[in-house]
Amino acid sequence: MRPLKPKLVVPAAVAGAGQGDRWARSFIEYLRTECHLAKNSVAAYQRDMTRFCRWLGDRFIPKLTVRDLTDYLAFMREENLDPKSIARHVVTLKLFLRYLQLEGIIKDNPAELLGTTKTAATIPDVLSPTVAARLLDAPQPYDPLFRRDRALLELLYATGCRASEVSVMEVRDLRIEDRFCLARGKGSKERLVPLGDPALAAVEAYLEHERPKLAAKSKQGVPPWLLLSSRGQRLTRQKIWELVKQYALRCGAPASMSPHTLRHSFATHLLSGGADLRQVQELLGHASIGTTQIYTHVDQSRLKKIHSQFHPRA
């Protein structure tokens, strides 16, 4: 922790509208440059701070009380945020006011007195193996970049990677001969994930027939990323979401389908096949096994099978 700086004297003119925005920008810059948070994490904090500043208006931060912050929680409920999102906003608020303490702008942190909203663990959507197979076969030769799209879907399902991880994956991260790829997760943590035959075949077909043509369209030299857009740029996380939604609609998958659904399906199908929870934790890149345990609630058929197999009174 950095040493405390002398308390700043805030002129009366600064105490009006706009002071929250200035301190919020300073806080985000602190997270980016001094805490070295990942880009996506900084973006999430920035979204939370935007909402907080919208609520803040001309309120003066050093004068905020616990009652004021309770009103902020009510404001978020009025905006129909779910309990999980509100809990995340509370964490952001606590960290922001802690930063202002370090800067000497405030003496006490009233957010520390806010209770943490407990959120119920939600069971993620999971595709059946049959629907997953239909989705992976959805890209067809009449689609402009069907080989790339097949490689994308196969990678998401074969590795359990997040959309953001597949988006930044580079060609050098592939180890085709060794049958695995390198994934960079949250906090820039790296992990090795095996690739099965269907995923390898889809990726190799894309590398041979489509990627060279896409790479030639890049105006910034040879692009390092594995999955490229029609203009030879990195395939963004947003575009990956659009493609998954497009092919989900085509194959009759649920409307709530997203890239994360394939990640959930990857984990659940592994557990259904008998994989150990610790192994699945490592493959998903979860820091805590508690996060992985949610998948044990999804596959009730496996639990029934274990019960009938081992319980003497089953």
Rank of each mutant, 00 (worst) to 15 (best):
L95Q: 15
P110A: 03
T92K: 01
C35P: 08
R77I: 12
L69N: 07
N109Q: 13
N80V: 15
N40D: 06
T92C: 13
V66G: 12
S85E: 05
V9E: 12
T130P: 04
W55T: 04
T65Q: 11
N109I: 07
K118T: 07
Y99W: 04
Y30I: 02
I123K: 01
T116S: 11
V91L: 01
T70D: 14
D68W: 03
P124W: 14
G57K: 04
K107R: 11
A120N: 13
R22I: 10
S41M: 05
R22L: 04
L73Y: 00
G16C: 00
L37C: 01
L93C: 08
H89F: 00
L69W: 00
M76E: 04
Q46W: 01
K118S: 12
P129G: 10
V126W: 05
A43I: 05
A87K: 10
V10Q: 11
E29S: 10
N40P: 09
T50V: 03
I106H: 02
S85K: 04
I123Y: 01
I86M: 07
D48Y: 10
Q101I: 10
D71N: 12
Y99R: 03
I86G: 05
D48N: 15
D68M: 06
K84V: 03
T122N: 09
A120Y: 13
C53K: 05
A15L: 11
L64W: 00
K94H: 13
L93N: 02
L69P: 06
T130I: 09
C53T: 03
T50H: 11
M49K: 01
E29I: 04
P129Q: 12
P110D: 05
G16F: 01
P83C: 04
L31W: 01
T119H: 02
W55P: 05
E112H: 15
D21H: 00
L97H: 09
P124H: 14
R32W: 06
S41V: 00
A87I: 02
P124V: 15
R59Q: 06
L93I: 11
E112L: 15
N40Y: 02
R25E: 05
D71S: 10
R77K: 06
L127Y: 14
T117E: 14
D71V: 02
H36E: 03
E112G: 13
D58H: 08
L69I: 08
L114V: 08
F60G: 08
